[in-house]
Design a binder for these strands. Sequence first.
DNA 1: GGCTGATTGGACCGTCCGGTCCAGAGGGGT
DNA 2: ACCCCTCTGGACCGGACGGTCCAATCAGCC
Lengths: 204, 204
Amino acid sequence: MERALTPKGAATRQRIVEGAAQLIRVRGVPNVGLDDIRAATSTSKSQLFHYFPAGKADLMLAVARHEAGQVLEDQMPMLGDLTSWRKWQAWRRRVIKIYDGQRQRCPLSALTAQLGNADPATREIVTTLLDDWHGLLAAGVQALKDAGEVDASIDADKAATAVLTAVTGGAGMLQATDRISYLEVALSEAIDNLRRPRARVSAA
Amino acid sequence: MERALTPKGAATRQRIVEGAAQLIRVRGVPNVGLDDIRAATSTSKSQLFHYFPAGKADLMLAVARHEAGQVLEDQMPMLGDLTSWRKWQAWRRRVIKIYDGQRQRCPLSALTAQLGNADPATREIVTTLLDDWHGLLAAGVQALKDAGEVDASIDADKAATAVLTAVTGGAGMLQATDRISYLEVALSEAIDNLRRPRARVSAA
DNA sequence: GGCTGATTGGACCGTCCGGTCCAGAGGGGT
DNA sequence: ACCCCTCTGGACCGGACGGTCCAATCAGCC
């Protein structure tokens, strides 16, 4: 499916993706036209279709991939080394800092929500991202268990899901309300809960 | 700002809003045109602009208000009476059932994300909804505290935020991945955490 | 019955924008 | 030097869609 791509071509393609991503972060998919991208990246219409034959949808997909990769990238190296309580806190601070910085402009949801979550290609990008993210968190929980820093009865997968949900939920509400407190509180609570002793909880 | 509106007019207006909401839930804002709404509601172009003078944006706002109201409505009466552990569980089941039913079609995010979260009017609708939602949850936590069913040292506001974030985060990921498990696990964990004894947690 | 304003129908317009096309410049391999 | 394929420029097209307009109808009210 890939065409031969000279270094020059690859650079242009990259410039287009990054320029488009930049625009979309600020203005959202529906408010960014091909002409905007063309202008912002000093390219021409034909180049856009040269590198993204299927047109806008194709380009948006490339942007989505780019942004999805960025999400975990931004949380590194903390996210990849959650082996102690202190490192979890460092990661937490990083996450809050990132989202506080981008505020409205959540690259992830800006694309998924506005690109149509029905599209299987989009779906797959997000699913992969969440799986990776969840995996890293679960590994971190497991590391704490191994180190005896959290109760051994904790289910690493479930705990990772709880933390992940706190981040995505908090980020979503930050985006909608411009309040960072949801993310701060939810994430802090989620991490704190890892530390609490596991009392037996009877199902209702 | 309100015009005199005969019963007949009010009914038509209502029909438009509900028909538009229906369409948007399935196809998303960008994929629903005024002509679609016109056709689906057996109205004419002039009626759309008669009842929503500012055009599509105006109509979308009305739809957003309608959907926002629906969110809490759907969770009643459980959400309004979280006075015992059993009732919390009943609410939890209801929430999961609701979101499992609508899957991709999350009325809330379908509108906020695609309507531009920069728009202050949209922002206000969501903010109000989340405030109300949070308030009801906090009241529920407080009720448990009063009944001595949860540790008295719990911060009702923070706990409510944690639960709310679990729901919105889980719902968001459900929308993106079509997996209900995030919501199930996160919400269950969040509620279970209310029951756990509050061990002192030292800040890192 | 006629007046007034709400209500409805639907033709029409202008623009925005994704997409097409073709012609030309660049540049590296033989 | 030559050729071929990549790369670039930008004019152009056609459809979709939000929005306008005017005329017709309906409903309460004196």
